[in-house]
C-alpha cells in the first residue's frame, strides 16, 4: 500500500484534465476493484480522481429507440430499470449475476467494464505477473488455471517466462452482455469526446498484457449506449460458477436469438470467463445465421467457435473442462431460448 493524493474535481472535463496531467493517476468509480488493488499493492497510483458524482446517473431514451446509460448509474439501478428488463433481459440478468447486492449498489456502469482481468497471481504481488510488472513472467502458466482463458491464448502451455504471456480472463458479467448487444462506449479524453464500439474496448494481451483496454491515459467512460435491438427482447445470460452466488464465472453465455420457424434468422452470442476480453462468438454466429434452430446445429456452432480453444494445464486439474462445459452451456442456452425459456 502506497500513499496517494485524492482529488474530487467539480466537472468531468476537470477530472480528465487532472488525470491527463499526472502520468500515474487513475479514475475512481465505485471502487469495488480499485480499492482492493490499492490495499494489495497491485495498483500504486500517485493520484486518485473521484468521478463518482461527476458523470450522469441517468438512463435516457435515445432518438433511435435505444438507451443511453450514464457512467455513474449503479449496476443495481440498471438491473432494475424496466426498459432494460423488457428490451435487454440479457443485460439485466448479467448484472444480477455479478458480485452481490452490496457490491452492485456501489459498482458503476462506467467502471464495471474497466475492472482489471482476474487472476490470483495478478492479485499477489509476490508472484510473477506481466500485467502487474511487465517482463516479470506469468506465474499462472501451469499454476491455478481454473478461472483462466481458453480462447485468445496462443498455446496449451505458453512460455511462462515470456514478457507477453498472460492467460487471465475478464471477470465482468455485464461486459459479456454488452459485447453481445453491440453497445457503444462514450469516452471523454484529453482530445475531446468520441465513441467506440464496446466490442473494441477490451483487447487481448498481445505484446502488452498490462493493458486491458484500448483506452488511453485520461480517457474517461462517460456513458454506455445500447442501440435498439428488437431481437434482444428474447435474450438471456447463463452464468456457470462454482457456487450459486457471489462467484466469478467459470464460463458464461450471453445470447439473443431470433428464430423464424425452424431457422435462425439472427443471433448474438458472447462468452465470459474464457478470454482476456468479453468474447463475442462471431464464428458461432456465422455458422448459426440462416441455419436450423436445432440442438445439433447449436452444438456444431459452439464447436466451431471453440475449435481454436486451448486448455490450460494446472495444479488443480487445469481448465480443460471449460471446453466441454462451454459447448454444453452454449447449446443449452440457445436451446432454452428456442423453447422460450428464459432461464
Amino acid at each position: 500500500m502506497k500513499p496517494f493524493a485524492f482529488a474530487r474535481p467539480g466537472s468531468v472535463a476537470e477530472a480528465v484534465r487532472e488525470v491527463s496531467a499526472e502520468p500515474n493517476a487513475v479514475f475512481l468509480g465505485g471502487g469495488t476493484n480499485l480499492v482492493d488493488h490499492l490495499k494489495l499493492g497491485v495498483a500504486r497510483p500517485d493520484l486518485v480522481v473521484d468521478v463518482r458524482t461527476l458523470t450522469s446517473r441517468e438512463t435516457t431514451d435515445t432518438a433511435d429507440g435505444g438507451l443511453l446509460v450514464g457512467a455513474a448509474v449503479s449496476n443495481s439501478e440498471l438491473a432494475a430499470d424496466r426498459r432494460v428488463r423488457e428490451h435487454y433481459p440479457v443485460l439485466a440478468q448479467a448484472l444480477l449475476a455479478g458480485a452481490n447486492g452490496q457490491l452492485r449498489n456501489l459498482a458503476t456502469v462506467g467502471g464495471n467494464p474497466l475492472q482489471r482481468t482476474r487472476c490470483v497471481y495478478f492479485q499477489d504481488v509476490t508472484t510473477a505477473c506481466n500485467k502487474r510488472e511487465p517482463g516479470s513472467g506469468c506465474a499462472a502458466v501451469g499454476g491455478y488455471t481454473r478461472y483462466h482463458a481458453v480462447l485468445g491464448v496462443p498455446a496449451a502451455l505458453p512460455d511462462a517466462t515470456a514478457a507477453d504471456t498472460c492467460i487471465a480472463t475478464h471477470p465482468s458479467d455485464m461486459a459479456v452482455a454488452l459485447a453481445a448487444l453491440d453497445a457503444v462506449v462514450h469516452v471523454l479524453g484529453p482530445q475531446g469526446a468520441r465513441t467506440l464500439p464496446f466490442r473494441e474496448l477490451h483487447r487481448l494481451p498481445g505484446d502488452d498484457p498490462s493493458r486491458d483496454t484500448v483506452l488511453g491515459h485520461g480517457d474517461l467512460v462517460t456513458a454506455i449506449e445500447l442501440p435498439p435491438l428488437p431481437m434482444a427482447a428474447r435474450s438471456t445470460y447463463r452464468k456457470v460458477r462454482d457456487r450459486a452466488s457471489y462467484a466469478f464465472a467459470l464460463v458464461s453465455v450471453a445470447a439473443a436469438l431470433d428464430v423464424d420457424g425452424d431457422t435462425v434468422r439472427d443471433v448474438r452470442l458472447a462468452l465470459g470467463g474464457v478470454a482476456h476480453v468479453p468474447w463475442r462468438a462471431t464464428r458461432a454466429e456465422e455458422v448459426l445465421r440462416g441455419g436450423p434452430a436445432t440442438e445439433h446445429a447449436f452444438r456444431a456452432a459452439a464447436e466451431a467457435e471453440l475449435a481454436a480453444a486451448q486448455p490450460q494445464p494446472g495444479v488443480d486439474g487445469g481448465n480443460g473442462f471449460k471446453i466441454p462445459l462451454l459447448t454444453r452451456t452454449i447449446t443449452a442456452t440457445l436451446r432454452d431460448l428456442t423453447e422460450g425459456a428464459t432461464s
Binding site: V120, D124, G143, R243, A244, S245, A247, V315
Partner: peptide, 27 residues
C-alpha cells in the same frame, strides 16, 4: 472449500474469500 495448493511456489493460490469459496445462502 478447497485451498488450492500451488506446489511450485509453496502457497495456497486462492488465498482470499473471492477465490476460496465458502457456501452461501443461495447454495
Amino acid at each position: 472449500e478447497n485451498s488450492v495448493w500451488d506446489p511450485r511456489i509453496g502457497q495456497v493460490a486462492n488465498h482470499d474469500l473471492a477465490e476460496y469459496h465458502v457456501t452461501v445462502n443461495a447454495d
